[in-house]
Each structure stands twice: as C-alpha cells, then as structure tokens.
C-alpha cells in the first residue's frame, strides 16, 4: 500500500513537472500583443473602410476640386497636374493635425525640387479666414491653405475624422491615404512613394 501511495505521489509530481515544462514552453511561444503605435507600418490599420473611409480611394483618380485659398484665389487640384501632391484635411481645433503640419512644411521644402506640393484643406471654414490664417501662421506653414466645403469632403470619402491625408502622384492617382496622426518617418516614406509613382525612368534617375 505504501508502494501504491508512493507511486501515486510520484506520478502526481512527475505530471506536475511535465505541466510546468509545457507551460513554460507555451509561455515562451506566446505572442504578447501590445497596442501598435497609431498608424504603424504603411497605414496598414487604415485598410478597412471602417477604419479609414478614404482608403477606398487608393489606386483611383483623386477627385477634382476648385476651392478658395486664404488670399481669395481659386485653386484647383488640376493646377498641380504633373506634380506629386499631398492633399491634407485638417482643422484649427484638431490638435494632432497641428502636430504634423510643421513636419509637412519641412518635408515640402526638402522635396520641393521634385515638384512636390502640399495643399492644406481646412474642414472648419466656418472658423473664419482670420482664425485660420493666424493658426497657419503660428504653425509656420507656407503651403497653400484652401477652404474645404462639404462637396469636396464627400468626394474624398466623407471626412469622418482628422487629419486625413491623400497622397496623389503626378498622374493624379491616389497612391496612399492615411487617417489620424502618423509619424514623420511614415509621412516621408509616403511622400517618397508618391514622388516615385507614375514617374518615367528618366525622372526617377534624377534621384533625391
């Protein structure tokens, strides 16, 4: 009987040891999911239409628009045909928008030699030109600021949240869209992608 009990105890202990080892292996193999940084690799989280309503414009022709700029001129997307353009929707009340705009200004200067331009479409035209101009000045942007209307917002998928960016290549095709604030590095990568897209080999050879 003693032998029997000893056998049981040994079996139990052995079993527990096996379980512990199995647990350790399982734990080692386990992948811990941590929240990704907002908009990680190439807007992959913006792929579903629900996440980024603008995503459905990828690969399509960027919708045309003619809007008023802050200095009262009429500006059309068509004015920039043949140039890579970043169409960015923002608002004076949107803090993340104002975080990325100085990066846009820097990158615009950096890539201006390749014809790159940025158009800042403000979704809060009702804030008044003065407030918008003051904000743009304070942030230090010198690229064109246009007053968006409902029509252009609808055309670009209905701007449910801000910021929303549409990267348009020289041929007027939307090569990338992002919703929400992303990193400066990601923005630069998208700009390079846009510049390279639709370019002839001759233009690409020009390099940076």
């Amino acid at each position: 009987m003693i032998v029997g009990i000893s056998l049981l105890l040994w079996a139990g202990w052995h079993n527990l040891r096996e379980r512990r080892i199995a647990m350790q292996t399982a734990a080692a193999n386990q992948v811990m999911l941590t929240p990704a940084a907002p908009q990680s690799a190439s807007g992959q989280d913006s792929d579903s239409e629900e996440q980024n309503p603008g995503a459905k414009l990828r690969g399509k022709t960027a919708p045309a628009f003619t809007l008023s700029s802050l200095d009262g001129k009429k500006v059309s997307l068509a004015d920039y045909k043949g140039r890579p353009v970043l169409v960015n929707f923002w608002a004076t009340w949107c803090a993340p928008c104002k975080i990325e705009m100085p990066w846009f200004e820097e990158l615009r200067k950096q890539y201006a030699g390749q014809g790159f331009e940025i158009l800042g479409l403000t979704a809060d035209a009702d804030a008044g030109k003065d407030a918008i101009a003051k904000t743009a000045q304070k942030i230090g942007v010198t690229y064109p600021i246009l007053l968006a209307n409902e029509k252009v917002q609808d055309a670009y998928g209905g701007i449910d949240y801000l910021p929303m960016s549409f990267y348009v290549d020289r041929n007027g095709k939307v090569v990338e869209t992002t919703g929400g604030l992303s990193s400066k590095d990601e923005i630069e990568a998208n700009i390079k992608k846009t510049i390279a897209s639709g370019a002839t080999t001759a233009a690409v050879k020009g390099g940076e």
Binding site: W93, P96, G180
Partner: peptide
C-alpha cells in the same frame, strides 16, 4: 463637445 482618440479628432 469635441472628441479625439489617440491619433485623430472627430468633428464637434
């Protein structure tokens, strides 16, 4: 009110 999440802001 006007709401935002960790990376984007929604209209008022």
């Amino acid at each position: 009110y006007q709401a935002c999440d960790h990376a984007a802001c929604y209209p008022p």
